[in-house]
């Protein structure tokens, strides 16, 4: 079986969720030949040493900026003579934007937003939470044919280490008249903090934080833990945190190793975004708060006492 994983990069670094795709393929499809597929005029050096069997470098100077239109065109051109059995793409901004377009271009199925792979004899089913995680679907293609799957960050273990893959360069000519967006500017807004959707640890605040100034404290805690700051919808609607940090049904769906909920009641729409976290800690003054029903460790106390102590003890 041939599995291709799409490696997203920014010219310098490889995105961590893409390394998890390799980890997932290794774990669930141990027999597969794994090929990393990377697009751009230049690709990061790290890609050349990924622990996979082969590398395909899809090369064109029109691929310097990511656009779904040019990238899907280039990938479909590069693959048109040999479509692998499975193409894995991370459910990041780029992956979510690219995968459906690519699937339509290649006319193959896409099973998106997956959190696991189930292999049973030769049947492959993908695990896909639906209804905000209130049901877990086992999804498959209707025909026995190649398919694409997008995988949510933190679903699989990442890989490190190096390999000695075969590198193949595929030059693609992208027509000038392709109907596409033009990228005017790209801005980094989170600095050195990981994105909420990808961070291994997320410290989240809700209405119990009382005001925007108190989120500084959560940032500090996130920093010592190497994590990111999340927020409930109430905190976002109050304007205490930007929308991009909202966790929940109308925010981000995340599954970090550790989720620390501070002053969050645990409404169903909030739980939709975080209940698949591996370990949940809740700090809330109300012993009846819903969040305690799903928390592995609960602290019924004032977060303004607990959080500073956590920062102190962990520093």
């Amino acid at each position: 079986m041939k599995v291709y994983v799409f490696i997203e990069h920014n010219g310098e670094a490889v995105r961590k969720p893409c390394l998890e795709l390799i980890g997932g393929a290794r774990k669930h499809l141990p027999e597969a030949e794994i090929t990393a597929m990377c697009a751009g005029q230049e690709i990061p050096d790290r890609v050349r040493h990924l622990p996979v069997d082969n590398i395909i470098h899809i090369k064109s100077d029109a691929l310097t900026d990511y656009t779904s239109e040019r990238h899907s065109y280039a990938i479909s051109e590069a693959l048109k003579n040999s479509i692998p059995d499975i193409i894995l793409i991370s459910a990041t901004f780029q992956g979510r934007d690219l995968a459906p377009r690519l699937s339509a271009k290649l006319n193959i199925p896409l099973i998106s937003e997956c959190t696991g792979i189930n292999v049973d004899n030769s049947n492959i089913n993908l695990i896909h939470p639906m209804f905000g995680g209130r049901a877990i679907a086992s999804v498959s293609t209707t025909k026995d044919e190649p398919f694409i799957a997008t995988i949510r960050p933190n679903a699989f273990p990442s890989v490190d280490g190096e390999g000695n893959p075969q590198i193949e360069e595929v030059k693609v000519d992208i027509p000038d008249d392709i109907q596409t967006v033009e990228v005017l500017s790209v801005e980094d807004t989170t600095g050195d903090m990981p994105d909420v959707a990808e961070a291994p640890i997320v410290v989240s605040g809700g209405r119990g934080m009382k005001g925007p100034e108190n989120f500084k404290m959560l940032e500090e805690l996130a920093k010592v833990l190497g994590g990111a700051v999340g927020a409930s919808r109430s905190a976002v609607d109050e304007g205490w945190m930007p929308q991009s940090h909202q966790v929940g049904q109308t925010g981000k769906t995340i599954s970090p190793n550790l989720y620390i909920a501070c002053g969050i009641s645990g409404a169903i729409q909030h739980r939709a975004g975080m209940s698949s976290s591996k370990c949940i800690v809740a700090i809330n003054t109300d012993p009846e708060a819903e969040i305690f029903k799903i928390a592995d460790y609960g602290i019924v106390s004032d977060l303004f006492k607990i959080v500073p102590l956590m920062i102190e003890k962990l520093s």
């Binding site: 596409t180 033009e182 005017l184 980094d188 989170t190 990981p194 994105d195 929308q243």
Partner: peptide, 11 residues
């Protein structure tokens, strides 16, 4: 909104 930032595009 893109991961870790934002971008501006025109079409």
């Amino acid at each position: 909104e893109i991961d870790g930032g934002r971008r501006t595009v025109r079409a």
